[in-house]
Computed example of a mutant assay.
Amino acid sequence: MSMPAALDVMRGELEDAAAHLGKLHDLRFKPMFGGLMAWLDEKPCAWLTPSGLALKLAAADQSALLQLAGASRLIAMPGAAPSRHYIVLPAALSRDTVQLASWLAKHAEGAVSRRSAASSPRRRR
């Protein structure tokens, strides 16, 4: 199965960002719903779609990214609600390896804090 050229370009941009962070070997891709799903450290981190590269971010990091011109919430299919987690990056940001790497690092930090919160024992009253 051949990959559309735009998805191949986005994949290369994400690989460059992961390499910049020293995590290229922790990045995986799998075809999904007409695009590519990317995993970093075995956690979903991005969805590469015809709409653009959508990064999965914690709620605390989303507002800063959404303030950038060209950023928007991913709408996976026509008529679907906007994603609560995935933000489509402006094209200029995804082509900037250093900036993309910093946002990818924010994803990884958010994934670690979500994992820590989920694994912490709950108190009984």
Score class of each variant (00 low, 15 high):
residue 1 M to N: 10
residue 3 M to E: 13
residue 5 A to I: 00
residue 5 A to C: 01
residue 6 A to V: 14
residue 7 L to V: 00
residue 7 L to D: 01
residue 8 D to Y: 01
residue 10 M to D: 08
residue 10 M to N: 04
residue 12 G to N: 02
residue 13 E to F: 05
residue 14 L to F: 05
residue 17 A to Y: 01
residue 21 L to P: 02
residue 21 L to M: 06
residue 22 G to M: 05
residue 22 G to R: 02
residue 25 H to S: 15
residue 25 H to R: 14
residue 27 L to E: 11
residue 29 F to V: 03
residue 31 P to Q: 07
residue 32 M to Q: 14
residue 35 G to A: 09
residue 37 M to Y: 04
residue 38 A to Y: 06
residue 38 A to C: 07
residue 40 L to K: 01
residue 45 C to E: 10
residue 45 C to A: 14
residue 46 A to W: 08
residue 47 W to N: 04
residue 51 S to R: 13
residue 52 G to W: 01
residue 56 K to S: 14
residue 61 D to K: 01
residue 63 S to N: 07
residue 64 A to H: 13
residue 64 A to F: 08
residue 68 L to F: 11
residue 68 L to W: 08
residue 68 L to A: 13
residue 70 G to N: 10
residue 71 A to D: 09
residue 72 S to L: 08
residue 72 S to A: 13
residue 74 L to Y: 03
residue 74 L to D: 01
residue 77 M to K: 13
residue 77 M to T: 07
residue 78 P to D: 12
residue 79 G to A: 02
residue 81 A to P: 02
residue 82 P to I: 03
residue 88 V to L: 07
residue 88 V to S: 00
residue 92 A to Q: 10
residue 94 S to D: 05
residue 94 S to V: 00
residue 95 R to I: 00
residue 97 T to W: 02
residue 98 V to L: 13
residue 99 Q to E: 15
residue 100 L to V: 00
residue 103 W to F: 11
residue 104 L to Q: 00
residue 106 K to P: 05
residue 107 H to T: 10
residue 108 A to C: 10
residue 110 G to C: 07
residue 113 S to A: 11
residue 116 S to C: 14
residue 117 A to P: 02
residue 117 A to T: 07
residue 117 A to C: 09
residue 119 S to E: 15
residue 125 R to Q: 04
residue 125 R to S: 10
